[in-house]
Protein backbone atom coordinates (compact mmCIF):
# COMPACT_ATOMS: atom_id res chain seq x y z
CA UNK A 1 0.00 0.00 0.00
CA UNK A 2 2.84 2.35 0.85
CA UNK A 3 4.39 1.32 -2.45
CA UNK A 4 1.26 2.33 -4.33
CA UNK A 5 1.24 5.69 -2.54
CA UNK A 6 4.78 6.21 -3.77
CA UNK A 7 3.79 5.08 -7.25
CA UNK A 8 1.07 7.68 -7.40
CA UNK A 9 3.74 10.39 -7.57
CA UNK A 10 5.56 8.93 -10.56
CA UNK A 11 5.03 8.25 -14.22
CA UNK A 12 5.81 4.59 -14.84
CA UNK A 13 4.84 2.09 -17.54
CA UNK A 14 6.26 -1.03 -15.79
CA UNK A 15 9.07 -1.41 -18.31
CA UNK A 16 11.11 1.78 -18.23
CA UNK A 17 12.40 3.42 -15.03
CA UNK A 18 9.82 5.58 -13.23
CA UNK A 19 10.16 9.37 -13.29
CA UNK A 20 8.99 11.53 -10.42
CA UNK A 21 6.16 13.87 -11.34
CA UNK A 22 5.05 15.15 -7.93
CA UNK A 23 1.33 15.72 -7.50
CA UNK A 24 0.61 16.03 -11.20
CA UNK A 25 -1.15 12.64 -11.39
CA UNK A 26 -3.64 13.94 -8.85
CA UNK A 27 -4.04 17.46 -10.18
CA UNK A 28 -4.58 16.19 -13.72
CA UNK A 29 -7.21 13.74 -12.52
CA UNK A 30 -9.17 16.30 -10.61
CA UNK A 31 -8.78 19.30 -12.85
CA UNK A 32 -8.48 17.98 -16.38
CA UNK A 33 -9.38 14.33 -16.80
CA UNK A 34 -12.76 14.36 -18.50
CA UNK A 35 -12.96 10.57 -18.42
CA UNK A 36 -12.26 10.44 -14.71
CA UNK A 37 -15.19 12.77 -14.09
CA UNK A 38 -17.43 10.57 -16.20
CA UNK A 39 -16.20 7.52 -14.34
CA UNK A 40 -16.92 9.14 -10.97
CA UNK A 41 -20.47 9.93 -12.05
CA UNK A 42 -20.99 6.38 -13.34
CA UNK A 43 -19.77 4.91 -10.07
CA UNK A 44 -22.02 7.24 -8.11
CA UNK A 45 -24.97 6.23 -10.31
CA UNK A 46 -24.28 2.55 -9.63
CA UNK A 47 -23.87 3.11 -5.90
CA UNK A 48 -27.07 5.09 -5.39
CA UNK A 49 -29.13 2.65 -7.43
CA UNK A 50 -27.62 -0.67 -6.46
CA UNK A 51 -27.25 -0.20 -2.70
CA UNK A 52 -30.83 0.84 -1.76
CA UNK A 53 -32.42 -1.60 -4.22
CA UNK A 54 -30.23 -4.38 -2.96
CA UNK A 55 -31.16 -3.73 0.66
CA UNK A 56 -34.88 -3.36 -0.05
CA UNK A 57 -35.12 -6.46 -2.24
CA UNK A 58 -32.98 -8.50 0.15
CA UNK A 59 -35.16 -7.58 3.10
CA UNK A 60 -38.41 -8.30 1.25
CA UNK A 61 -37.10 -11.66 0.13
CA UNK A 62 -35.84 -12.49 3.60
CA UNK A 63 -39.20 -11.66 5.17
CA UNK A 64 -40.98 -13.73 2.53
CA UNK A 65 -38.68 -16.67 3.07
CA UNK A 66 -38.86 -16.39 6.84
CA UNK A 67 -42.44 -17.73 6.77
CA UNK A 68 -43.37 -21.32 7.22
CA UNK A 69 -44.03 -22.14 3.58
CA UNK A 70 -43.60 -25.36 1.72
CA UNK A 71 -40.27 -25.83 -0.05
CA UNK A 72 -38.60 -23.11 2.02
CA UNK A 73 -35.06 -24.45 1.74
CA UNK A 74 -35.53 -24.90 -1.98
CA UNK A 75 -36.53 -21.27 -2.47
CA UNK A 76 -33.73 -20.03 -0.29
CA UNK A 77 -31.26 -22.11 -2.28
CA UNK A 78 -32.65 -20.78 -5.57
CA UNK A 79 -32.25 -17.17 -4.50
CA UNK A 80 -28.78 -17.81 -3.16
CA UNK A 81 -27.60 -19.62 -6.27
CA UNK A 82 -26.54 -16.49 -8.21
CA UNK A 83 -24.18 -15.56 -5.37
CA UNK A 84 -22.11 -18.65 -5.99
CA UNK A 85 -22.41 -18.43 -9.77
CA UNK A 86 -19.32 -17.39 -11.68
CA UNK A 87 -19.78 -13.73 -12.56
CA UNK A 88 -18.14 -14.06 -15.96
CA UNK A 89 -20.51 -16.81 -17.02
CA UNK A 90 -23.49 -14.92 -15.61
CA UNK A 91 -22.52 -11.69 -17.34
CA UNK A 92 -22.17 -13.46 -20.67
CA UNK A 93 -25.61 -15.02 -20.35
CA UNK A 94 -27.11 -11.65 -19.42
CA UNK A 95 -25.38 -10.16 -22.43
CA UNK A 96 -27.27 -12.56 -24.68
CA UNK A 97 -30.53 -12.03 -22.83
CA UNK A 98 -30.33 -8.27 -23.33
CA UNK A 99 -29.78 -8.44 -27.10
CA UNK A 100 -32.28 -6.22 -28.92
CA UNK A 101 -33.29 -8.60 -31.68
CA UNK A 102 -32.35 -12.03 -30.41
CA UNK A 103 -32.33 -11.80 -26.61
CA UNK A 104 -34.94 -13.46 -24.43
CA UNK A 105 -35.82 -10.29 -22.47
CA UNK A 106 -36.42 -8.41 -25.70
CA UNK A 107 -38.26 -11.40 -27.16
CA UNK A 108 -40.92 -11.05 -24.48
CA UNK A 109 -41.37 -7.37 -25.31
CA UNK A 110 -41.49 -8.03 -29.07
CA UNK A 111 -44.09 -10.71 -28.41
CA UNK A 112 -46.11 -8.30 -26.30
CA UNK A 113 -45.99 -5.76 -29.12
CA UNK A 114 -47.18 -8.40 -31.55
CA UNK A 115 -50.06 -9.59 -29.36
CA UNK A 116 -51.33 -6.17 -28.32
CA UNK A 117 -50.54 -4.42 -31.58
CA UNK A 118 -48.98 -1.55 -29.64
CA UNK A 119 -46.01 0.20 -31.18
CA UNK A 120 -43.64 -0.76 -28.39
CA UNK A 121 -40.03 -1.79 -28.81
CA UNK A 122 -37.59 -3.18 -26.29
CA UNK A 123 -34.84 -0.85 -25.18
CA UNK A 124 -31.60 -1.33 -27.04
CA UNK A 125 -30.03 -2.27 -23.70
CA UNK A 126 -26.30 -2.57 -24.09
CA UNK A 127 -26.16 -0.43 -27.21
CA UNK A 128 -27.54 2.61 -25.45
CA UNK A 129 -25.62 4.92 -23.16
CA UNK A 130 -28.85 5.36 -21.19
CA UNK A 131 -29.98 1.73 -20.87
CA UNK A 132 -26.60 0.08 -20.42
CA UNK A 133 -26.39 1.37 -16.86
CA UNK A 134 -29.70 -0.16 -15.71
CA UNK A 135 -28.63 -3.38 -17.41
CA UNK A 136 -25.52 -3.50 -15.25
CA UNK A 137 -27.64 -2.65 -12.19
CA UNK A 138 -29.99 -5.55 -12.98
CA UNK A 139 -27.14 -8.01 -13.33
CA UNK A 140 -25.57 -6.84 -10.08
CA UNK A 141 -28.88 -7.08 -8.21
CA UNK A 142 -29.53 -10.55 -9.54
CA UNK A 143 -26.06 -11.61 -8.54
CA UNK A 144 -25.94 -10.17 -5.01
CA UNK A 145 -29.53 -10.21 -3.79
CA UNK A 146 -29.14 -13.68 -2.34
CA UNK A 147 -26.28 -12.54 -0.15
CA UNK A 148 -28.30 -9.66 1.32
CA UNK A 149 -31.20 -12.04 1.81
CA UNK A 150 -29.18 -14.56 3.79
CA UNK A 151 -27.71 -11.94 6.10
CA UNK A 152 -31.18 -10.46 6.65
CA UNK A 153 -32.60 -13.91 7.36
CA UNK A 154 -30.07 -14.32 10.13
CA UNK A 155 -31.03 -10.88 11.46
CA UNK A 156 -34.74 -11.68 11.31
CA UNK A 157 -34.36 -14.90 13.19
CA UNK A 158 -32.62 -13.10 16.01
CA UNK A 159 -35.74 -10.99 16.67
CA UNK A 160 -37.51 -12.32 19.77
CA UNK A 161 -41.01 -13.50 18.96
CA UNK A 162 -42.50 -11.80 22.00
CA UNK A 163 -42.04 -8.44 20.33
CA UNK A 164 -44.40 -9.40 17.52
CA UNK A 165 -46.87 -10.89 20.00
CA UNK A 166 -46.83 -7.73 22.05
CA UNK A 167 -47.34 -5.60 18.94
CA UNK A 168 -50.24 -7.81 17.89
CA UNK A 169 -51.87 -7.43 21.29
CA UNK A 170 -51.55 -3.67 20.89
CA UNK A 171 -53.47 -3.97 17.64
CA UNK A 172 -50.67 -3.47 15.11
CA UNK A 173 -51.35 -4.87 11.64
CA UNK A 174 -48.79 -6.72 9.52
CA UNK A 175 -47.50 -3.52 7.90
CA UNK A 176 -47.19 -1.76 11.22
CA UNK A 177 -45.36 -4.71 12.72
CA UNK A 178 -42.95 -4.62 9.76
CA UNK A 179 -42.42 -0.89 10.09
CA UNK A 180 -42.15 -0.62 13.88
CA UNK A 181 -40.72 -3.98 14.90
CA UNK A 182 -38.88 -5.60 12.00
CA UNK A 183 -37.14 -2.58 10.54
CA UNK A 184 -35.73 -1.20 13.81
CA UNK A 185 -34.78 -4.68 15.00
CA UNK A 186 -32.77 -5.50 11.88
CA UNK A 187 -31.15 -2.08 11.76
CA UNK A 188 -27.75 -3.41 12.91
CA UNK A 189 -27.91 -5.87 10.01
CA UNK A 190 -28.95 -3.08 7.66
CA UNK A 191 -26.02 -1.03 8.83
CA UNK A 192 -23.57 -3.84 8.23
CA UNK A 193 -25.01 -4.50 4.76
CA UNK A 194 -25.06 -0.83 3.90
CA UNK A 195 -21.36 -0.47 4.57
CA UNK A 196 -20.43 -3.70 2.82
CA UNK A 197 -22.63 -3.09 -0.22
CA UNK A 198 -21.49 0.46 -0.59
CA UNK A 199 -17.86 -0.57 -0.63
CA UNK A 200 -18.80 -3.30 -3.10
CA UNK A 201 -20.61 -0.83 -5.37
CA UNK A 202 -17.65 1.54 -5.33
CA UNK A 203 -15.51 -1.35 -6.51
CA UNK A 204 -17.81 -2.56 -9.27
CA UNK A 205 -15.69 -4.06 -12.05
CA UNK A 206 -16.44 -7.58 -13.33
CA UNK A 207 -20.03 -6.87 -14.35
CA UNK A 208 -19.23 -4.05 -16.78
CA UNK A 209 -15.91 -5.61 -17.75
CA UNK A 210 -17.53 -8.73 -19.12
CA UNK A 211 -20.93 -7.45 -20.18
CA UNK A 212 -20.25 -4.06 -21.73
CA UNK A 213 -16.47 -3.50 -21.78
CA UNK A 214 -17.24 -0.25 -20.03
CA UNK A 215 -19.19 0.95 -23.06
CA UNK A 216 -20.95 2.12 -25.00
CA UNK A 217 -18.96 5.34 -25.03
CA UNK A 218 -17.71 4.79 -21.45
CA UNK A 219 -21.27 4.79 -20.10
CA UNK A 220 -20.50 1.88 -17.77
CA UNK A 221 -16.83 2.56 -17.07
CA UNK A 222 -16.33 2.48 -13.29
CA UNK A 223 -13.48 3.72 -11.09
CA UNK A 224 -11.94 0.30 -10.68
CA UNK A 225 -12.29 -0.40 -14.40
CA UNK A 226 -10.52 2.87 -15.11
CA UNK A 227 -7.71 1.87 -12.73
CA UNK A 228 -7.40 -1.41 -14.63
CA UNK A 229 -7.34 0.33 -18.01
CA UNK A 230 -4.67 2.78 -16.94
CA UNK A 231 -2.46 0.19 -15.29
CA UNK A 232 -2.66 -2.65 -17.77
CA UNK A 233 -3.89 -1.24 -21.05
CA UNK A 234 -2.42 2.25 -21.15
CA UNK A 235 0.79 1.64 -19.20
CA UNK A 236 0.13 4.38 -16.67
CA UNK A 237 0.90 2.76 -13.34
CA UNK A 238 1.34 6.09 -11.56
CA UNK A 239 -2.00 7.45 -12.65
CA UNK A 240 -3.67 4.14 -11.78
CA UNK A 241 -2.21 4.33 -8.27
CA UNK A 242 -3.41 7.89 -7.89
CA UNK A 243 -6.95 6.87 -8.86
CA UNK A 244 -6.77 3.97 -6.41
CA UNK A 245 -5.89 6.41 -3.66
CA UNK A 246 -8.74 8.71 -4.59
CA UNK A 247 -11.04 5.69 -4.44
CA UNK A 248 -9.63 4.78 -1.04
CA UNK A 249 -10.33 8.32 0.18
CA UNK A 250 -13.93 8.10 -1.04
CA UNK A 251 -14.56 4.77 0.63
CA UNK A 252 -12.96 6.01 3.82
CA UNK A 253 -15.01 9.20 3.93
CA UNK A 254 -18.30 7.48 3.14
CA UNK A 255 -17.73 4.72 5.65
CA UNK A 256 -16.78 7.27 8.27
CA UNK A 257 -19.97 9.23 7.62
CA UNK A 258 -22.01 6.06 7.91
CA UNK A 259 -20.46 5.16 11.22
CA UNK A 260 -21.15 8.67 12.47
CA UNK A 261 -24.76 8.57 11.30
CA UNK A 262 -25.52 5.12 12.63
CA UNK A 263 -26.24 6.48 16.15
CA UNK A 264 -29.33 8.14 14.76
CA UNK A 265 -30.98 5.06 13.34
CA UNK A 266 -29.31 1.83 14.43
CA UNK A 267 -30.81 0.12 17.47
CA UNK A 268 -28.69 -2.35 19.37
CA UNK A 269 -31.09 -3.18 22.20
CA UNK A 270 -32.15 -6.60 20.89
CA UNK A 271 -32.71 -9.12 23.62
CA UNK A 272 -32.64 -6.57 26.46
Amino acid sequence: MVGSLGLSFVRWNLLTPPTFVGLSNYTQLIARDRIFHKVLWNTLYFTITIVPLQLALGLILAVALNQAIRGLTFYRAIYFMPVVTNIVAAAMIFQWMFNRDFGIISAMIWRLAEVTGLPIQPPDWLNSTFWAKPAVVLLTLWKNMGFTMVIYLAGLQAIPHELYDAAKVDGAGALHRFRYVTIPMVSPTTFFLLVIQMIGAFQLFSEPYVMTNGGPAQATLTIVYYIYQNAFEFGRMGKASAIAWVLFAFIFIFTFIQIRLQRRWVHYEAGE
Partner: peptide
Protein backbone atom coordinates in the same frame (compact mmCIF):
# COMPACT_ATOMS: atom_id res chain seq x y z
CA UNK B 1 -3.43 2.29 -27.11
CA UNK B 2 -4.53 4.97 -24.69
CA UNK B 3 -5.48 7.46 -27.40
CA UNK B 4 -7.62 4.93 -29.21
CA UNK B 5 -8.98 3.18 -26.12
CA UNK B 6 -9.94 6.26 -24.21
CA UNK B 7 -10.86 8.80 -26.88
CA UNK B 8 -11.33 7.61 -30.46
CA UNK B 9 -13.05 4.29 -29.94
CA UNK B 10 -15.50 5.40 -27.19
CA UNK B 11 -16.23 8.57 -29.15
CA UNK B 12 -17.16 6.62 -32.26
CA UNK B 13 -19.27 4.21 -30.22
CA UNK B 14 -21.83 7.01 -29.92
CA UNK B 15 -22.04 7.01 -33.71
CA UNK B 16 -22.28 3.22 -33.96
CA UNK B 17 -25.00 3.30 -31.28
CA UNK B 18 -26.97 5.79 -33.35
CA UNK B 19 -26.91 8.35 -30.54
Amino acid sequence: GELNGSIISPGLQRVWAGE
